[in-house]
Amino acid sequence: MTGVARSPFPDGGLHHDALFYDHDTDHLDAVHEFVVAGRSAGEPVLVAVPGHRIPLVRRLLDPLDGVEIADMAVIGHNPATIIPTALCGLVRRFPGRRVRVLEESLWSGRRPAVYRHCVEHEAMINLGLADQPLTARCLFDRSRLPDAALADAERTHPWLWSGGAARPSAGYRPPRAVLNQLARPLPPPPGDAVTVPIDAAGLGALRAAVAAAAEAAGLGGERVDDLRITVTELASNALTHGTGPATARCWAAAGEVVCEVSGPGELGDPLAGRIPPTVASIRGRGLLLVQRLSDLVDVRVVDGVTTVRARLELPAGRAGGRVPAPRSAPDAAQGGFVRPASR
């Protein structure tokens, strides 16, 4: 194992770097170096790695007090939840102290749909946590990840860590530039998506419509309840903050149930749903809850219209085809289903 390395960063705000490793021994060396440096400084430490790495990491770290271990495949299943749960959570549990998190949010075998959201997460760290007393080191498997993933890691980390020292990342880009590049247009909803106009009096019908569509596609149990809460939060946000009529749509495709709310009005804060509000705040929890309940969430603002698209995975074996039409379809004036004409 390597010795304890000194950080080149000044005390104070965020220290965010990436470390590329080549094999299991490299990985354990990186974990050991980071944790021992933190414990030597009296800093609380969280190590969040995918589940298949936890047994080795646990054997390495069990003798060390003050170290927490988490399964990134669980706490970061939706990468958008890593900041509020793991990073902000640790900072707020230890006010006035510097904390450190070693995380591995991207690994070979991660479902492809998550990739862009992992890159977005890393950029969000730089944007939202710049003033926090946090040392965040992110591990990337150079032997298994494609070159494009390593290039994105360089774009989203101000520093690269190697051989016990940090050097500036030549590829680093400002977080807003990275986020703008990632915000590609969403594919349009299918022509047969279940569509419900949103109004305050019709939220019950909206929940019922979305639940029926999700159950017909194969979503079940508590996940249908999660979708009901999700669409309620999104619709309430549209009614509260939007500037005109909004619409909810639901469909199934590619192994997912998708629920979308779209309407005029601009969501100007890219960190909405990422940074938990203070205890005293009465707002700011809606999108946070949507992220927690969804497997992935996309937010887009185009020409003054905000679209939030929440995606929930179907159980294995359910391909997620066309959402069947409901047995009855009341008209829009009664808050029921509206079947759009084919496009």
Rank of each mutant, 00 (worst) to 15 (best):
A217V: 04
Q291F: 05
P197E: 04
H16V: 04
A217K: 07
D141Y: 07
G89A: 04
P185G: 02
A333F: 08
P324Q: 03
S143P: 07
F337A: 12
T232Q: 10
R53P: 05
A280S: 15
P276C: 02
R283V: 03
E103Q: 13
V114T: 15
S143T: 10
G286D: 08
A246E: 03
G163M: 08
P187F: 05
A248I: 01
T247K: 06
A41M: 01
N180M: 03
S40N: 15
G96N: 13
Q181L: 11
R58E: 15
R207T: 12
P189K: 08
E43M: 08
D22R: 11
C138S: 15
R98Q: 08
G242M: 03
A238K: 10
F140E: 12
V261G: 09
D62C: 03
R274C: 01
A325R: 15
S294Y: 12
L179C: 13
A193P: 04
V67T: 00
F94Y: 09
T307H: 02
D225T: 05
E43L: 04
Y172R: 09
L90R: 05
D131Y: 07
L87C: 01
L206F: 11
A216D: 06
V114Y: 10
T240E: 06
L56H: 14
A319N: 08
P330E: 09
C259N: 11
V194C: 10
L293I: 07
G317V: 02
G66N: 01
H27W: 11
D225Q: 14
R6K: 11
